[in-house]
Design a protein around this nucleic acid. Structure first.
Lengths: 239, 239
DNA sequence: CGACGGATTGAAGCACCTCAACGGGAGTGG
DNA sequence: CCACTCCCGTTGAGGTGCTTCAATCCGTCG
């Protein structure tokens, strides 16, 4: 969460990462200019439309990625079609924290997305040469682990109301550092929210309606909302 | 899961870790004799009875631990008493993968347990000096992350039957490398299973009964069972 | 032996799901 | 500019899987 955004050196014009908006957020933030250039040049920049799959569950993990813009979902499918979304990836997030042979989850673009793609062999060699990168990746993994475990509490023990309230607060924290009555975007469909929260679409929709009726949130459009009563929302989120 | 158990050097008698049964499994496995000695001597060995708490959720994370014997549970409590267990720690597991100030989960002993305790400051200094340790810890974190995400699927989308079947198979894989009709221990109470699986005690009990009635498992005692029909159990686990 | 705590079983309730109909905004074509 | 359509989201009514509440069982320990 708290990134060491303090000391990220300015890059010279012409550097391949000069215009990167998320360098400080991403794992790249720990590399200085020359190393970062070599790192970036070890792989291409790729674009994906909404709906496209970046990696398939079960595929061999040959590359890792850094998301620079857009939005991804990490999901898993049961044989009969039930789906669980393990998490969303926002700009600055890293895709491919694993030491297994294969990807355990499918990663799909929800919005048009841009990613820096790195062959895993190069990436691992680079990690070995740059302990700061390895340390940073450990920090990311530890943070993801904490988030996943927090989500276990939500899925195992929270009611539908509590789940949606928690989710909305998470979105608020994730999307805007700026607070205070601002519009918060809902960048994914109700189906994606449902599969993330372990609910059905209809239940998510009903809970939105209830929160709206209770003057806790305001639905500006179907894709954005405003928190009216944050205190109440936080109460609802924790039971 | 797959540990690099291949190349773990023999220790000389008198080494503080000479008798450690889980050295190869634990993060310690990557350190050679002298470094391991220094590492071990940076903190005490502590014992806890079943029911005792090792770290409290919200407490400052001053130490990290390596579990050498016994069994711990990692749990979180909601204000009204609902509890979710995020995972169990078996011998060889590491407690304290976090870079946050505070522990996010409570860790309690379920069985009499022995832990190597390390002041976090020493531990982090040691990591900085021993890249292999850091790499190993990253591997552990990545593995825990994968396990937690797998558990998200269970909690978000699986039925009670599927949850218990998955859990029993996990126990089988975790406790014994030796297979084939062997007795598998259930080292925790029904309440702990329930809080891990996002169910109620009664539901866990009913599902045990159903599996038993269907000749899928045999309950030897209340604390141990045998898999009669593994194929069927695996079918049940995945839906 | 008697009491206690964990586990099992039974019966009734409820939160969320399923199935179904409807609504509304975006894109398309006339 | 409007009508049509499609898709996503919302709302309603009924069903169900798990929970809740309660009684009983059983192994352990005093």
């Amino acid at each position: 969460m708290a990134t060491n955004a303090a000391v990220v050196p300015m890059l010279e014009p012409g550097h391949p990462c000069f215009n990167c908006a998320v360098r400080e957020l991403a794992v790249c933030g720990v590399l200085e200019s020359a190393a970062l250039r070599a790192f970036k040049e070890s792989g291409p920049t790729v674009h994906h439309q909404a709906g496209e799959t970046i990696v398939f569950e079960g595929d061999e993990a040959q590359c890792v990625y850094s998301l620079t813009s857009g939005l991804l979902r990490l999901s898993k499918l049961l044989p009969d079609g039930r789906r669980q979304i393990a998490g969303f990836l926002f700009p600055g997030d890293f895709l491919g924290i694993t030491l297994e042979e294969d990807h355990a989850f499918t990663a799909e673009a929800i919005a048009p997305s841009t990613l820096c793609k790195f062959p895993r062999r190069h990436f691992e060699a680079f990690m070995a040469d740059h302990p700061a990168l390895e340390r940073r990746l450990y920090a990311v993994a530890a943070h993801e682990l904490a988030a996943a475990r927090q989500q276990l509490v939500l899925l195992g023990r929270k009611t539908a109301t509590e789940r949606l309230a928690s989710f909305l607060l998470m979105l608020d924290g994730r999307c805007h550092a700026a607070r205070g009555g601002d519009a918060i975007e809902l960048p994914m469909s109700r189906a994606d929210m449902a599969d993330y929260l372990g609910l059905r679409i209809e239940t998510v929709s009903r809970e939105f309606s209830t929160l709206r009726a209770g003057r806790v949130i305001q639905l500006i459009t179907r894709q954005s909302f405003r928190i009216i009563d944050r205190e109440r929302l936080e109460q609802l989120a924790d039971g």
